[in-house]
Design a protein around this nucleic acid. Sequence first.
DNA 1: GTCTATAGTCTGATAGAC
DNA 2: GTCTATCAGACTATAGAC
Lengths: 206, 206
Amino acid sequence: MGGGRSSTARERVLAAAEGLFGERGYRGVTLGDVAEELGMRKPSLYHHAPGGKEQLYVEVMEKLLERYRAEMEEALAQAGPGIGEQLKAAARSILSQRPPVSLEGMVLRDMPAISEERSRRLMDVAYRSLHGPLLAALAAASNRGELHHLQDPPLISGTILSLVGGAQVSAYAAGGRDDRADEGEVADALVDVLLDGLRPRVGGGS
Amino acid sequence: MGGGRSSTARERVLAAAEGLFGERGYRGVTLGDVAEELGMRKPSLYHHAPGGKEQLYVEVMEKLLERYRAEMEEALAQAGPGIGEQLKAAARSILSQRPPVSLEGMVLRDMPAISEERSRRLMDVAYRSLHGPLLAALAAASNRGELHHLQDPPLISGTILSLVGGAQVSAYAAGGRDDRADEGEVADALVDVLLDGLRPRVGGGS
DNA sequence: GTCTATAGTCTGATAGAC
DNA sequence: GTCTATCAGACTATAGAC
């Protein structure tokens, strides 16, 4: 959406900005940080991103979210048809993403700093990208009878996203000690809890 | 930790800072914002908070977290002994807090902006305040046989916190439309899912 | 495409009068 | 306790040379 042959330099700028914005958020990154990572000076960025910091942030985050959606949909397509396999694939997909985008951080900390119109558009993309594939997987499983009554599907997909996002934070907040299992196992454990619950099943054994 | 008779003016400063920092985070609040809310000028703040912005943030957030812990423990004490009642009381307690503190936002966005030593101390308080009561309730319920094997209790308490925190965000991200049930019902629904799981129980009926 | 120079703004913080 | 005045630094952004 800019011209025929795209320049490689522009893509390098977008990649650097994506890594920094995704990890630290809008206010946690200055154009100086982006320039430094690229080995250039601040004003040089404006040649590739004439819209300035805010537009650069929005463009980069939209692409990042679209990529997450594509990878999550691919993971869901490759996984088995059972809801357990589906959700584990989705959770693993999210946890494996770099940078680890924080939807909560975006909503609570980044959005208030950018224009309302851009904020609304970006939140739409985020909702479609992160909730969309999960909602589809949940609906399919529900039709197959694998799930309880789903009164409020977005609440459930939000729950899954919160769960996975929170798992990343827990590792940090617990003190940085990395005595926990790897990401994939955490994702599986969370999905197991979500599907079967913490409470022992009345009919079953231990 | 300062003197015998505390001044009321200082408490007003702390209260204003708490509301703003809790809601918008460290970088989202300027000392000018705090001063404006109090109807004073920036330099006047330094009379009550000589340590500057960073120390004010830490002091205020520690008190806020301790208060959350106290209220959560009280809610747990007043609730019935069943794990369902306990967790619902905890979830309702967190959801009812004002300002709605975001642990994820604190960890991912605020901590990188403050000194490492203060960050570590504040994260310790956050962990004890938010995870502590939940871990105690989970351990008690586990001893009563109300729970599955708890391999990783902090993962579960983190899950609960993520769930509740995410519920607040969902409301905003879904577009601000407030067609959802009130906070208490959302908290109950989340706890029900967490305890019984999304999957229909094999032994039981619909 | 990248740079230097710089405008203009915001922010945290201090000095000192009242 | 609160103010005015002020500073140093960081930040986004623009102008214009090379």
